[in-house]
Amino acid sequence: MTIFFFLLVHVLDTALVRVSPEAYDETIAIYKNPVVNLMEYGLAAAVLFHALNGLRVIAVDFWSKGPRYQKQMLWVSVGLWVVLMAGAFYPIMEHSLRDLFGS
């Protein structure tokens, strides 16, 4: 649902460029706040978890030993997700962190 909402908003705000470039600039300025930045981080978290879990499901379905190891693969997926999201925190949240704590 998060991805759908993001895509809907993205299409609508990009369409503003043709209608009114000033309205587009104002809309993009609204997005430059910590709440929206945190939502972007949440979106990245959802997409990454979905991708890793999808790979796990593929392995369970198409690997003969997949069902036997699905619990271990789940924990590997979650572990990878945590590590990758920790590494993505600063690059995604950089602008908000600079605004909150100074350059």
Rank of each mutant, 00 (worst) to 15 (best):
A51M: 14
S77G: 06
V11W: 14
L7W: 12
K65S: 14
Y41S: 05
I30A: 06
Y31W: 10
G102V: 10
V76S: 02
D61W: 13
L7A: 07
M93R: 11
V82P: 03
L80S: 11
F89T: 04
A44D: 01
E26I: 07
G102A: 08
M93K: 09
V9R: 08
N33H: 08
D99A: 15
Y24W: 15
K65Y: 06
I58M: 05
R98T: 08
L80A: 13
V47I: 15
V19K: 13
K32P: 00
D13M: 14
P67W: 09
G79W: 10
V47G: 01
P34M: 08
V76L: 15
L100C: 02
A29M: 12
Q70E: 15
E22F: 12
T27C: 05
V47Q: 00
G66N: 08
F101H: 11
S20T: 05
V35S: 07
A86C: 07
D61T: 14
F49V: 03
A29Q: 11
F5Q: 12
L80H: 02
A51H: 04
G42L: 15
Q72S: 07
Y24Q: 12
Y31E: 05
A46M: 09
Q70G: 02
A86P: 00
M85V: 12
V83W: 11
P91G: 07
P91Q: 09
K71P: 00
T14V: 02
R56A: 08
L97Y: 09
L97C: 03
R98I: 14
V76W: 07
A88S: 14
S20Q: 05
Y69A: 06
L55I: 14
D25W: 03
V57M: 11
S96D: 10
A86N: 00
W63F: 11
R56D: 01
A15C: 09
Q70S: 12
I92Q: 04
G87F: 13
K65E: 13
V82W: 05
H50E: 14
F49S: 02
D99P: 01
L97M: 14
L55C: 02
S20A: 06
E22T: 13
F89S: 01
A86G: 09
V57Q: 09
S20F: 07
T14R: 10
A51E: 07
K32D: 11
L48K: 04
L100F: 13
D99F: 06
A59M: 10
F5G: 00
V36M: 15
S64K: 15
G42R: 09
E26H: 05
L16Y: 05
L80R: 02
V35Q: 04
M1H: 06
V36Q: 08
D25A: 15
